[in-house]
């Protein structure tokens, strides 16, 4: 079910499903996205996040359910009548047009006068840092520059919502970090709603106001990055977002079954006076500069990872095979039903 959105809603998905023959790509999604929000759909490939984005853009018509944009039912509205623009995964720049012509295409289709198009294109190219490259063809640009053209082209018509389909997946790591900052800046400056699709959880956490984690066509959880990380609803979300230790409740002598989730950075080797939560055999101790990572196998066969500052380890030098006690604060653990 949809969470209460903090601001005026701009997108409402009401029980949206999409089936390709027997395959259900999207199944019964209820989602409200607020105006001006940076919302991210996160999940592994094939989880239906791109299908959901294509429903928002109008490329797919849901098999059932309704899509509302600013309150208007747009379920069957074709893409060219929606005030929504898309940044495609492969950018889909028009190869026979210059950068400026690409950026101005949407405005031209909307029937803007030539002079106004020229002004808006100059403004948008400056916004994405391509002011000097308006006369180039897309194939004369680097991947990062092409990405900026795609962003500029989608932002030029001042859409109500900008959809981004894995926009960073074709960029190398350094460029990706740069573009992430760029996206945050653009979101701030353009002041419009962004809906991003990604499989990169770090990207989702770093950029979004809220994240929807998807699995097999369904949204598992919708929450702020912080809540998704600290309070995942199930082991799937816990495991997908960051690293998680999932310990069967029985091993910790808890009632009721299920799993106990603790993040590796909350687990430490129990020193004197600290109550031991669980004991296990130390498998490996890896020094990673500022932090040390330990892998411990419990008698029940669960592998627990712990990560702590290397300064805390200076007095201890444990050989692998030793039995160690693990500890974590009460607030760090979360009980999951599945």
């Amino acid at each position: 079910m949809s969470e209460p959105a903090p601001r005026k809603p701009i997108i409402d998905l009401e029980g949206v499903s999409l089936a390709f023959g027997p395959v259900r790509a999207v199944s019964d999604v209820w989602l409200t996205i607020a105006s001006g929000e940076f919302f991210t759909l996160l999940g592994p490939s094939g989880c239906g996040k791109t299908s959901l984005l294509r429903i928002l853009a109008g490329f797919e018509t849901p098999t059932s359910g309704r899509v509302r944009l600013e309150g208007t039912d747009v379920t069957t509205t074709p893409p060219h009548l929606r005030p929504v623009n898309t940044v495609f995964q492969s950018y889909a720049l028009f190869p026979h047009m210059t950068v400026a012509e690409n950026a101005g295409f949407g405005l031209e289709m909307l029937g803007w006068p030539k002079q106004a198009i020229r002004e808006r294109v100059a403004e948008v190219l400056a916004l994405v840092g391509l002011a000097a490259l308006g006369d180039r063809r897309p194939d004369a640009l680097s991947g990062g520059q092409q990405q900026r053209v795609a962003l500029g082209r989608a932002l030029a018509p001042k859409p109500r919502v900008l959809l981004l389909d894995e926009p960073m997946s074709a960029l190398d790591l350094k460029l990706r970090k740069e573009m992430q900052n760029e996206l945050r800046r653009l979101h701030r400056e353009a002041g419009i709603t962004f809906v991003l699709v990604t499989h990169d959880q770090e990207e989702a956490l770093a950029l979004s106001d809220r994240v929807g984690v998807m699995k097999e066509g369904e949204i598992q959880q919708i929450a702020t990055p912080r809540d998704i990380y600290r309070q995942p609803v199930d082991s799937y979300v816990a495991d997908f977002i960051g690293e998680a230790n999932l310990i069967p409740a029985g091993e910790l002598d808890r009632e009721g079954g299920g799993l106990v989730m603790v993040r590796p950075e909350d687990v430490s080797l129990a020193g004197k006076g600290v109550p031991v939560r669980i004991e296990g055999r130390l498998l490996e101790l890896r020094f990673l500069g500022s932090i040390v990572e330990a892998a411990v196998a419990t008698p029940g066969g669960t592998m627990i990872r712990a990560r702590f500052p290397s300064a805390a380890m200076e007095e201890v030098a444990l050989p692998p095979g030793e039995t160690v006690g693990l500890a974590w604060p009460d607030a760090a653990e979360r009980h999951l039903e599945r």
Partner: peptide, 27 residues
């Protein structure tokens, strides 16, 4: 011709006819 170019044209408010005239025909 990448079919996404046509989707991109529709996304940028081009009707089918204009997507054909501006994207498919020139290419």
């Amino acid at each position: 011709l990448d079919p996404r170019l046509i989707e991109a044209a529709h996304d940028l408010y081009a009707t089918r006819r204009r997507a054909f005239l501006r994207i498919v025909l020139p290419l």
